[in-house]
Amino acid sequence: MLAQFDLAVVGAGIVGLAHALAAARRGLSVVVIDRDAQANGASIRNFGLVVVSGQEPGISRARAERTRAIWLDLAGEAGLDVLHRGKLVVARRAEALSVLEAFAATADGAECELLTPADVIARLPALRGAEIAGGLYSPHELRVESRDVLPKLTAFLAGQLGVEFRFGVAVTAIEPGAVVTSAGLVHAARVVVCPGDDLISLYPERIGQYGVRRCKLQMLRLANPGFQLGAALVSDLSLLRYEGYAALPEAAALRRRLENEQAGELANGVHLIVTQSADGSLVIGDSHHYGATPDPFGSEEVDRLILREFARLLPQVQPAVTARWTGTYSSASHAAFRDAPHEDVRLVMVTSGTGASTGFALGEETVAELFGF
């Protein structure tokens, strides 16, 4: 065990691991400290979808593109499985198709393909019978199995890059050159705090300045439907969840129609993402409820809304629900922030549920800022 590290990372979720990777690849000695025995929060309770198309134009989109490239590098280096690629956006309404047409006309949509209803069915015959106005195919997205990938990435960082992990250790304070933990002092020249949705333990006053709250989501796993997706699948409601679509002028008409036709889904922050695991099962969701401390209980009504949207898109398919869960993540009006409580300390939070999509780029930015690379 080293007596002194170049960098201590507090938090072993995907954002913390991203910072450890960026530092270790640059030859720095790194220790990662986490209070749990393994990653157990938002980083493994998600779709495992690296989203590029639909990210807010500018820095978020650029971070997603860079993060995607790093995921692909890691797929070879660390043996991380990419289960499928791309994203098929199915427009059920003419207003949704107008949003997709406007997006395709932007620089961020240039590599995407607009689809006719027949094109959509050709890409996924299981959609036959759904109301389809058209669609859009994005080639950029990647899908990994988060609950498998994080342990593999942790093992790669430890075994191949020499990162030291201290699990089951709580961090109580940050001092100049040291991290105060339940197992004693950890000496490090610089520190990055990646607290996930812990808004209280470290720097609560600084987190509070960014208006951060928690978002609770509900997700489900469905049995193997008997077909291969080939790409992630989303529908009209999702176009209001991603700024790259929602900020377009054409989205206003879609919002008005959805407010009339699917007010319950909008009130519960429900949209539809469908991804597929290696065993053929589907991960679907999700919902969004906000608060300082959201209750931990799943709502049958919210699950029903998610399943109903799934049935609208795939009316010929009725796979059984095999698992249900809730998760929480940090949420604010901006996608992410990096704060400097001290010249040698950075507080980094993704506040948009896009840690897997943008975290690796954030890690590189932070390490460059702290160490002058």
Rank of each mutant, 00 (worst) to 15 (best):
V191H: 01
V180L: 11
S235A: 14
R214D: 00
Y203H: 14
R206Y: 04
E265P: 09
F167C: 05
A246M: 08
A253N: 11
D197T: 07
P204W: 07
A178W: 02
V180P: 05
L157T: 03
V163L: 01
Y210I: 04
R206A: 08
P225I: 08
L222D: 02
R206H: 10
G196Q: 04
G226N: 04
K152S: 15
D236E: 09
G208M: 11
V171S: 00
A252V: 15
R213E: 04
V171W: 00
C215Y: 01
P249R: 12
L240M: 08
N224I: 06
E261T: 14
R206V: 14
Q228A: 13
R214Y: 02
A252H: 12
R166G: 05
L229Y: 02
Q262T: 15
D197F: 10
T181R: 07
E261C: 04
E250S: 14
E243K: 06
A251N: 03
D198Q: 05
E250P: 05
L239W: 01
V212I: 12
Q262V: 14
H187Q: 14
L258E: 04
A158L: 03
G159P: 02
V234R: 02
F165E: 00
T181C: 11
L161K: 13
A232P: 06
E259H: 03
C194D: 09
F167H: 10
P195H: 05
A155R: 15
A183K: 15
G184K: 15
A251V: 07
E259L: 12
A170W: 06
I207S: 00
Y245V: 08
P204A: 13
L240Y: 02
A251L: 04
R257D: 05
L222Y: 03
G177Q: 08
L202M: 13
R206T: 14
A231I: 05
P225T: 12
E259K: 05
V163P: 00
L202Q: 06
V212F: 04
A263E: 11
A189M: 06
E261D: 12
V191G: 06
A178E: 02
R255S: 11
A183W: 09
A173V: 11
L157I: 07
A173I: 13
A178F: 00
A183Y: 09
G226D: 05
E243T: 05
V191M: 07
G184I: 12
V186F: 05
D236T: 13
N260R: 15
A178Q: 09
G226L: 06
I200T: 15
A155V: 06
L258A: 04
T181P: 11
G230H: 12
G230S: 13
V163H: 00
Q209H: 12
R190S: 09
L153M: 12
F167L: 12
A173P: 10
V234A: 15
S235I: 07
G264W: 03
R255M: 09
V192F: 03
A173K: 09
V212R: 00
G162L: 02
P204Y: 11
E261F: 00
